[in-house]
């Protein structure tokens, strides 16, 4: 996988193999992990207050819709890039004005993985034997982190 810049300040992800396509597509899979409600998670510290019921009713739906919008942006870009199928080399374009949506989608994926596996701030996860689900999830999380750092360096707008 290579990252290059576009003339108008965007980023292109050049994907060579099916495994790389799967890695990028995993952003959506991880972010939509069943049972993980990001809107509730970011407000969890308010859950024991008397205002939580109103917050749940009035604020959480808007948050959920905003989070889904970020994922829709990423899904559309992957779909366009994968028109030739996930087994051929291709390019996913991240326009500059979509940097924030991408960053946010990657963050959702990392928060969802963190909630399941509790990696903490470790940069390396020891795996006892052959690759485990947890080890693979940590690898994806590190990949998402790498893309996020790249987007942040370029400026989120």
């Amino acid at each position: 996988m290579n990252l290059t810049s576009t003339a108008d300040g965007g980023i292109e992800l050049h994907l060579e193999h099916q495994a790389e396509w799967l890695m990028v597509a995993s952003i959506l899979h991880d972010a939509n992990r069943p049972g993980f409600d990001l809107a509730a998670a970011v407000g969890a510290r308010m859950a024991d207050t008397e205002d939580w019921e109103d917050w749940s009713e009035w604020v959480l739906p808007d948050l959920r819709e905003g989070f889904q919008q970020h994922l829709r942006t990423v899904a559309a870009a992957i779909e366009v890039g994968a028109q030739q199928g996930f087994i051929q080399p291709g390019t996913v374009v991240i326009p500059r004005d979509a940097f924030f949506d991408w960053y946010a989608a990657l963050n959702q994926a990392r928060l969802a993985l963190e909630s399941k596996y509790q990696f903490g701030q470790k940069s390396r996860i020891e795996t006892e034997d052959t690759p485990t689900k947890r080890g693979a999830a940590h690898f994806r999380s590190q990949f998402y982190n790498f893309l996020q750092a790249h987007l942040l360096d370029r400026g989120l707008g």
Binding site: V42, R45, M46, T49, V59, L63, G66, F67, A104, L111
Partner: peptide, 14 residues
């Protein structure tokens, strides 16, 4: 502001 921060995925309370 709390809603804005949560929309940016920061854990926030009041």
């Amino acid at each position: 502001y709390a809603q804005q921060l949560q929309a940016h995925q920061l854990t926030t309370s009041l």
